[in-house]
Design a protein around this nucleic acid. Structure first.
Length: 416
RNA sequence: GCCCGGGUAGUGUAGUCCGGUCUAUCAUACAGGACUGUCACUCCUGUGACUCGGGUCCGAAUCCCGGCCCGGGCGCCA
């Protein structure tokens, strides 16, 4: 006797024989009820089942004549654990497509779809392999606080919250804490961090709550030490997904290949030259906008590079990145024209970081807590923040970053 | 923040430009019925919708104004 637990995916009533397709995380399974081989009461009761009822089926497994199933269950008992109401808010079988907004409004039903489960199975596998890689290379996993007291980090807008009677904000990056861990002698750390960004963007690749693999490492020579960790991390993680997720990739129709090492290095100067040769009027020192990133992505694809670094940015990129003449030691990692990672070698000397703040028109006096960590023995260090949702979106050719996070928070959505 | 686009049964759509049997299309869903090997089962019957408010007009799903909601692009984005 075997037991099958799951959701009623479909009922095909042929009159004298009935088929119930049961769906669970393992896939689809067939329950077959020939009129003369199952209890009459059970045969009749199948008519009262609804799609998406949760059932437990007891019966005998036999070889099946079905095209899609090697075996089938001939039941002697079917227990309805919980009936589903009708009509359903959307069709989990995918016969009738639903818009993303409808799907997200009813995410728990949407999550029953094999395509959605494939994305999140791969997401889990991605994190499993990334953790294993970082662990094998001496990185400790840490959890830093998401609640910060001041907006002194500059840059993006923060979400204000109330912390008892004090104002506070949701963290937009674990950057300060990662650097504090370097000052604290942890040498190599990573964090699977949540980022909150209060920007009113409205695109298919932005979230107001996103997740990233953040690492920081000490005693580096330059940013190349960090970049090597990043490219190896990607290489090994993708290899792990290819090895473990063939079913999921097939469900999504994605042909995933492991990107060869080392990744292409493009300097900012080369990127600007390339863009100008393609007709862009970008000036030296300008940020690479969406259009520029897209153009570079096309050009790199033409050269056979899916993933590529852009390094040696102008020194005005970010204040805490180590300057190097007119350049700095920051880098981005792009994939197919979309930025996935931002990182670099950080300033580690107190005098340098103070002069960098002044260079950026910021007041060192308002960075007292941050500056303190550079005063009592700070090693050279660097790291990166690597957006998980964006990576998955590019890897799995998803059209919208919201496909790669269970409960997206965007400009308008705070539920579910 | 700027600029486009959209809102029709539970779901996804046709119709809107050019107002008139639209008594609103089709699929799926749902309800009932037929069928002993389906596998998007098939077939028959039925149920179910024009985002809200105002305006123009003999007449508004369709045109105009406003609200609400949503999508997308750009900007922004340690």
């Amino acid at each position: 006797m075997d037991t099958l637990k799951g959701w009623v995916h479909e009922i095909r009533d042929m009159g004298g024989i009935k088929f119930i397709i049961i769906r669970n995380r393992d896939g689809l399974h067939q329950v077959t009820l020939p009129k003369k081989k199952v209890p009459p009461e059970l045969f009749e009761r199948v008519g009262s089942l609804n799609r998406e009822d949760v059932v437990v089926v007891h019966g005998e497994t036999k070889d099946s004549k079905a095209r899609d199933f090697p075996t089938e269950l001939i039941p002697d008992a079917i227990t309805v654990v919980n009936a589903a109401e009708t009509p359903l808010p959307l069709d989990p079988s995918g016969k009738v497509k639903a818009e993303l907004d409808t799907r997200l409004d009813n995410r728990f039903v949407d999550m029953r779809r094999p395509e959605v489960q494939a994305v999140f199975s791969i997401r889990h596998t991605l994190l499993r392999h990334a953790r294993a890689y970082l662990d094998a290379h001496g990185f400790w996993e840490v959890h830093t606080s998401r609640i910060i007291s001041t907006a002194s980090e500059g840059g993006t807008e923060l979400f204000p919250i109330t912390y008892f009677d004090k104002p506070a904000y949701l963290s937009q990056s674990p950057q300060l804490y990662k650097q504090m861990c370097m000052a604290g002698g942890f040498e190599r750390i990573f964090e699977i961090a949540t980022y909150f960004r209060a920007e009113e963007h409205n695109t298919t690749r932005h979230l107001n709550e996103a997740t990233a693999i953040d690492i920081e490492m000490s005693f580096i020579e330059d940013e190349e030490d960090v970049m090597r960790v990043l490219e190896s991390l990607i290489h090994h993680t993708v290899a792990g997904i290819v090895a473990d997720c063939q079913d999921e990739l097939a469900t999504l129709g994605v042909a995933l290949t492991v990107p060869p090492l080392p990744f292409k290095r493009l300097t900012y100067d080369e990127a600007v030259d390339l863009l100008r040769s393609k007709g862009s009027d970008i000036a030296w020192g300008d940020d690479l906008g969406t259009e520029s990133e897209r153009l570079l992505g096309e050009e790199m694809a033409a050269q056979g590079h899916e993933y590529y670094f852009i390094k040696r940015y102008p020194r005005n990129k970010v204040f805490y990145i180590q300057p190097d003449g007119k350049y700095c030691r920051g880098f981005d990692l792009d994939c197919k024209g979309v930025e996935l990672t931002s990182g670099g070698q950080r300033c580690h000397e107190h005098a340098t970081i103070v002069s960098r703040l002044e260079e950026f028109g910021l007041n060192p006096a308002s960075f007292t807590d941050y500056l303190k960590i550079f005063r009592y023995g700070m090693p050279t260090h660097g790291g990166f923040g690597f957006g998980i949702e964006r990576w998955l979106m590019e890897m799995l050719d998803q059209k919208n970053v919201r496909e790669c996070i269970l409960f997206p928070r965007d400009r308008h959505r705070t539920t579910p």
